[in-house]
Design a protein around this nucleic acid. Sequence first.
DNA 1: TCAAAAGTGTTGGCGTTACACCCATGC
DNA 2: GCATGGGTGTAACGCCAACACTTTTGA
Lengths: 251, 251
Amino acid sequence: MRGNLFAVAVDLVVLTVRDDRLCVLLVQRPAPPFLDEPALPGGFVRPHEDLLDAATRELMEETGLTVDHHHLEQLGSYAGPDRDPRGRVLTVGHLALLPGLAGPADGSGAWHAVRDVGPLAFDHARILADGVERARAKLEYSTLATSFCPPEFTVSQLRRVYEAVWDTTIDPRNFQRKVTSTPGFLLPTGEKVRTGRGRPGQLFRRGDATALHPPMLREPIPAAARGVHVPAQERRPEPVGAGVRSGGGLP
Amino acid sequence: MRGNLFAVAVDLVVLTVRDDRLCVLLVQRPAPPFLDEPALPGGFVRPHEDLLDAATRELMEETGLTVDHHHLEQLGSYAGPDRDPRGRVLTVGHLALLPGLAGPADGSGAWHAVRDVGPLAFDHARILADGVERARAKLEYSTLATSFCPPEFTVSQLRRVYEAVWDTTIDPRNFQRKVTSTPGFLLPTGEKVRTGRGRPGQLFRRGDATALHPPMLREPIPAAARGVHVPAQERRPEPVGAGVRSGGGLP
DNA sequence: TCAAAAGTGTTGGCGTTACACCCATGC
DNA sequence: GCATGGGTGTAACGCCAACACTTTTGA
């Protein structure tokens, strides 16, 4: 077993969609190193604890939020020899998806739009990037987007989730057909809701299906919205984005 | 930092295709626990070592094989409190893909057809299952299958890789068109090779592309081969198989 | 009545499947 | 010649992007 022991931590990339933007939950480092700098919530794993349990506990302790295990998954481990000045620390990154209405219960932690996040403590910027890319990839071929929605939601709420996470715009008519015709994706409740202007939309609950067949296709319309001008050549240097589907390794 | 420290190990799921079967490299446990039982190759990470370096080193030490980092990726971490009787050990599983001609240099390690693998030491059976599923999923949307091939190969060699990993049969004519028409997947060398009977096939080298667009579709023809009779109704209880694309988490 | 959002119908293009057919080689 | 595997041509089908069009609400 030798003497080369590690401290093992879990860190969480907690994502949600608020005001049509993908947001991540960040905390201020309560102690050195990186005192007061923004960081992912997380902490050390206890002696008899499994990784997912530790992640769930740390999230509750640091922000008061609860995630059920259906919306929590392991991202990967980060163990660069110099990633923590205190010594050898391996951290296991996790990804959690929450509905937009959830807010940190106490003051320790706040939502930040992912696109505006600056440098983070440790290698947390890298972990965040991996988590965001994983979430983006999973929306393509899973029904995971409903995790960002409240228990009952309309098709356009769901569409806004896709648009926020992928930073694109999607044709509402084709999207409607796509999601309502995928068996087990959406269960109609029979009720309608008026959202202010326009015809009321039907309310749905998430169904049993977990996989999407065929998958949603990313980038239906290039993100020319929100003033972020992207020259045509820069849009897709690689045929597809990184993450689970392409950049995730073994390139 | 507290006193709850872990030993950190790396374990490798090393896959190849030999004789049209997906094979995994297993070693015999050289010491307790699980003395002499089959296990994945692996070992403890050294004090100043990164994870991928440790995986590369352990593979070399235990089997004499070398993998470049392009064919090596992290699978995930396994840290069940009771997974090792010696104490708290977290292991980071890795996936490595090797061409079929490679053989363990010395006697410590041998290829086993994945379908015939029985119980393994520790939780290695679980890690193996995750690695196999990851490899299966990645063939769909990446050019990774070429990692199983020697530097120069024919289209039918590549097809046999897909058939072995997915345990299906694929129409050779459509497969040919598909892979040769994907830009950057295969680079023709201009040479031909005679494989015994039949018309000689053209030789290719792997190209620069890493992603496949559109992806290969799994399960073109149900696996009615190899004597495993599958009644028509049982073939696809769910629209698609498990793995990264469906079962891989956040279900 | 108009704007806005929900939802349906239709069409053309593209990729795939299935299979007919030709090519090149060993026996 | 014949079997075997390499490789091309093509028609039918399915999915999807694009968009015309209808429905239902608030102002």
